[in-house]
Write a protein that binds this DNA or RNA. Structure first.
Lengths: 342, 342
DNA sequence: ATGGCAGATGGTAGCGCTACCCATAACGTC
DNA sequence: GACGTTATGGGTAGCGCTACCATCTGCCAT
């Protein structure tokens, strides 16, 4: 009569239970929880008491269905092995841990197809916001993002044509700055070694090339790359390859810090003096660069900050505050260290 | 008349649209999608055609509400900076990417309170399974896990009293094995240096102590620890502290590989011969241990495999297949390298 | 011929919440 | 004193899906 069916949910209190106990309507409970300002002080207290007593927790699934909006941030990164993305994720996480938003994440494995698949999985859920790494989405992914009906933040890079918002920095400028630094320090036969060669790596390479050409130093044989995923081990191998191909090498700009570390270790092993015989520059400035012996010059990238700011922008957009400039360039910083101090 | 209200959802096709187009009942569409075996070949084809034509995607929120079960795996890890957990996450992710399960993750920051909060956020959503790192949950967290109404896998460690299932290895045995190896290699004044000192680090320390005591070598002044989060930088500092405290040190077993790398770099910097003057052993066996110069002895831990197996066990449990043994010890492996080859 | 039973399909009634609209009271304003 | 206007609360009707039960068909055993 009262309960036509044993409750499927397993007997957890519902909003109706709270409403009954507090002697108010269910809607008022809903409002008291979501927009306390619209409910009088008295009722709010009464309702809070009922909530506490019953241990009521709103059902996020019912909420999502009724409001056509899930309290979920979807986050797409291309890799979990690469600690750079772990840091972005950490920034995202830390900025969201006060809120009731949950984080759902997807690993695209640097694949456009996989990214499309994941967007198709995330979309129907109507997430509160989407944060995706990179700016080179496939046309299908782009359309999925545009029609997602929620704020979208592309992170890690900036570019001219945001789907919605962007937070990042210029990899091309970073690559150029690193290379110019080495040229300034007197290196001439500067190699580029890079793994994975995703779009961001490509742009770092382009920056390297621009700097080298501007100085009249570019030589295609100085470039050693592979699509294989980056690792310290691979860094060592690539460095050996580069040196074999070009024995007069006097410096290397590495795609990232893992590669740089591998190169450094190989120098140790082969008794090549760093920075005297060969200079080394990394990219990202992981913690270990400072500590390495010799310490390694690198480009500090604002990974954690990118995560934090992307969330801040998304939350502002959810609250209806569109930023004046949807594209934010957080820049980077050259950290000169022993490995290029000739 | 037909549509009493403009559709809140924004006009995406619903199951009713598919049913109408295929000329069947909504329930049959639902069944065709979830348990194809229970629908005749003919209708299945018809329904599939309608689904394709409309581009129908089921609404996961509605599904979750109606079935009191969300297609979500909740994953709780204590850190994102520590690449060990990134690897576990990767294993979890890779095992789930074929399925329609989504992954929601939480970062407990090594805090029991934060873990409780996150479980309280995850619970009401009725996830399909929960994967949590560690076995030292607070009583409240434990109860939340027990009453979650879904499979629970505790990962990274094994222990006697699983909430439900466990996948991991013995950190105590790992610590002991590393220490015994150093003793065998002729080291005597072996220090332990450790950061963070979470429960797993504590057990590695206990293993170290057991081995040292068994050999009559233990001395409390050999132990240098800090609750500060681990990093390569910190490894260097701790190593210096340890050496200052105990100048006769002839070896160190490091809490983890970051610390070991910091110690190695400090040895380079201070011109301390490794492995001759001081031996170094790490823990986890990250990629870089093999490449370092000298290469660093470490304990290989099955991080990725833990992630994969935890998902496999959870999926089996969801399918109703309880494992014969709910606790799986994946073991570890000592990798002897140059840093302890005296 | 009857009953029974399995397999295939459909109808009804929610799951727990919120959007939308309405009711009421307490104040003004002119 | 009629008419807003604001603040506060409630009722109704779904959101899109699935659990539960009913129905219908065909086929076998009796």
């Amino acid at each position: 009569m009262t309960k036509p069916r044993s409750r499927r949910g397993g007997g957890r209190p519902t909003i109706a239970d709270v409403a009954r106990k507090a002697g108010v309507g269910a809607i008022t409970v809903s409002r008291a929880l979501r927009e306390p300002g619209r409910v009088s002080e008295d009722l709010r207290r009464q309702i809070q008491a009922a909530v506490d007593e019953l241990g009521y927790l709103p059902d996020p699934n019912a909420r999502a269905l009724a409001s056509a909006r899930a309290e979920v941030f979807g986050v797409l990164v291309p890799s979990l092995t690469n600690s750079v993305f772990a840091e972005v994720l950490r920034g995202i996480y830390d900025s969201l841990s006060d809120s009731s938003y949950r984080i759902q994440f997807g690993n695209t494995h640097y694949s456009g197809l996989e990214e499309e698949r994941l967007l198709q999985v995330f979309g129907p859920q109507r997430p509160a916001a989407l944060i995706v790494a990179g700016i080179d989405q496939t046309p299908i992914s782009r359309r999925l993002l545009e029609t997602a009906g929620c704020p979208v933040v592309q992170v890690m890079e900036t570019g001219p044509d945001p789907v919605d918002m962007m937070v990042g920095f210029s990899h091309l400028d970073g690559g150029r700055a690193a290379t110019e630094h080495m040229i300034e320090m007197g290196y001439r036969r500067i190699g580029f070694i890079g793994a994975r060669m995703d779009p961001r790596s490509q742009r770092r390479l382009a920056g390297y090339r621009a700097a080298m050409e501007a100085a009249g130093l570019f030589d295609a044989r100085l470039v050693t790359t592979t699509p294989v995923p980056s690792s310290v081990t691979l860094g060592r191998e690539l460095f050996r390859d580069a040196l074999a191909k070009m024995p007069t090498l006097d410096g290397v700009f590495c795609n990232n810090d893992d590669i740089a570390l591998g190169a450094l270790f190989e120098c140790h092993r082969a008794s090549i003096a760093v920075p005297k015989t060969i200079g080394i520059t990394g990219f990202n400035d992981l913690d270990m660069m400072e500590v390495a012996f010799p310490s390694i010059t690198s480009i500090r990238t604002p990974r954690y900050e990118i995560g934090r700011l992307s969330v801040a922008m998304a939350l502002a957009a959810i609250a209806g505050q569109r930023p004046q400039d949807p594209v934010v360039d957080l820049g980077f910083e050259l950290r000169c260290r022993e490995s290029t101090a000739r």
